[in-house]
Design a protein around this nucleic acid. Sequence first.
DNA 1: TGTTGGCACTCTCAACTTTCGAGTGCTAAT
DNA 2: ATTAGCACTCGAAAGTTGAGAGTGCCAACA
Lengths: 362, 362
Amino acid sequence: MISERKKKILAAVVDEYIRTAEPVGSKAIAQSGALHCSSATIRNELAELVAMGYLEQPHTSAGRVPTPMGYRMYVNELMEKQKLSLEEAEDMNRRLEAKLRELDATISDVSRLASQMTDYPALALTSRAAATVKRFDLIYVDANTFIIVLMLSGSTVKSKLVHLPVSVDQSLMQRLSSLFNASFTNIAEDQITPLLIRSTERAADDTMGVTSVISAFVIETLTEANTPSAFISGENRLLSQPEFRDPDKAHKLMSYLSGGGYILPSPEGMGDPSEVRVLIGPENVAEELKDSSVIIASYDAGDNTRGLIGVVGPTRMDYSAVAAKLQFLAAGLSRRLGGGEVPPEGMHNKLIIKGDDPNERG
Amino acid sequence: MISERKKKILAAVVDEYIRTAEPVGSKAIAQSGALHCSSATIRNELAELVAMGYLEQPHTSAGRVPTPMGYRMYVNELMEKQKLSLEEAEDMNRRLEAKLRELDATISDVSRLASQMTDYPALALTSRAAATVKRFDLIYVDANTFIIVLMLSGSTVKSKLVHLPVSVDQSLMQRLSSLFNASFTNIAEDQITPLLIRSTERAADDTMGVTSVISAFVIETLTEANTPSAFISGENRLLSQPEFRDPDKAHKLMSYLSGGGYILPSPEGMGDPSEVRVLIGPENVAEELKDSSVIIASYDAGDNTRGLIGVVGPTRMDYSAVAAKLQFLAAGLSRRLGGGEVPPEGMHNKLIIKGDDPNERG
DNA sequence: TGTTGGCACTCTCAACTTTCGAGTGCTAAT
DNA sequence: ATTAGCACTCGAAAGTTGAGAGTGCCAACA
């Protein structure tokens, strides 16, 4: 077990290290107040904390630096859950409003927002839950041209202009329209079989292959709607972190990130929407992230869609501030996009932080 | 005037410097062949080239490095216009096909492609020429819901689902649909005045403000279609360039780039689509680009839309290779997206390179 | 038994010095 | 006009030194 005093000391080390990015010594801790003992005592404690694996020394005569295990302890038990200042909260709300007013929030907007708020690279990800076609329309434009309009589950509308090499008459359009409405709506993507297409084609008496053009679009649209998409922004903010002064290191991580981040667990894997998850250094699966940390929050994007916002930074990250901001952002997004059973404001004090369930450890 | 031999020497310096990123000395040039004289002679010539402003020395006992003026001379007259190797051309075509098959090429795809091909950060930009609505449809879903479908000039279709707080009947929809078709099609965005909207509202006998919802969407869509959009990708590739080993420098440029690059001249400003434009160091307007170079090509994206692809790198850039690749890419895009009067393949030998017209100099 | 002041020790970092070599400019000979 | 030769310059890399921060440990103390 770890004594109360050790906890205090550990917390002080982490706080200080997060602030300064320099190894912290016994003296600094003694002076920081909060502890009523001399540096010598603290030295003893520090030595023990090193032995226990919570801290390490870059070299014999340097201060101490938290290990991933130390950060984990800090995140789980020690850090004081930060509340956002009123200004911060208002600023964030303002920005959210601005983004969400003009268009639906695209994931690129969400990730940009997260990155701006936290000053770290951020990524956003959505996995739409199995979309289906709710309604189907064909608009006849001219003999060679028509428009397909699909209304999907979840108030999305997709449309496409189709030019044909042959001419079709309006009655065929009519027939196809009602046939598709009858048999292609409310079914999952994988239920659109070649068999179904063929039988529709026959039923509509379509000899020029219009059916297959349309069904291809349907499949494509559903596939796209079901494919989780990811977006990352603010990679460059990495460069302002001292741990990425080495261009090679920075380059490695940045190309990993922009190569499409598989960093995040799937949104379904996340539990409670108000939960914030923290993955510290080696807890990450990806080799490239082994000495970075990732903080993740999830939001409800409506229509059974879950979204994820994540922030990437060095292990020496301001966990408390970032977690609070992300949670606030996620809650705001849920409130505006989602079903709406999210408690209104000010709920950012019951911040739940998780991340070390046994599955995720080696 | 500059002698023939000086030109050869200058070219050799630039070539070598591009290759190695190290100042090049007289000896290296002498050994590189191409010149039949000793290093001493070359030294004399080099001294004169420095005096003329084409080269400079980082310090007394170092080799020579090209000045922007030297690069300009190189780009305009000296460099051998590179042709792509057959493999490169084929590879590029393959990728283009792959991208363009599935969906229309979004500018994000284009910029990603350019970045991948050249290994520099790349940005893409389109300015759509004044879009108009070609056709207008309203699809009645239920009493509170309908879908607006706009077909724009240039085969784009936009649609939106609208939920109303009040219920409307199908006949109103009908009336609005034909009214909008009659008076909102083929007119520019700024011709949609409050007056026009009001009169339409009256004509349709619309007492619940549906008209204004619809016209708002029309305006929004046209605005969006007319707004040039920019996209940048591959910023991280900067970091592999030795001139950006300094994280601060890299950070500055990268944040400038991702802050929305106004780097590129507007597509209209570009002349012939097969022209490639090069802006060297201080020739750039933006302060942040004063010691970087930008290479730009434009393509015809169909429907009177011009697109631009640009690549950003250090002044020590492989102008010849990048220019060739960009031109090929632009030509490929034009061929696939645009009107089609672009000569088929193999036209990349008549590469035209420009960039130093008097307007652009200080 | 836990805490504290003191002291010798260790090790890094920054500043300074030295060395090495690439590259130059100049001169005299061809 | 070209070239070989040579003294000179200057920066980068390697080596040297000193200061300071921080430690571990011991002996004294509560």
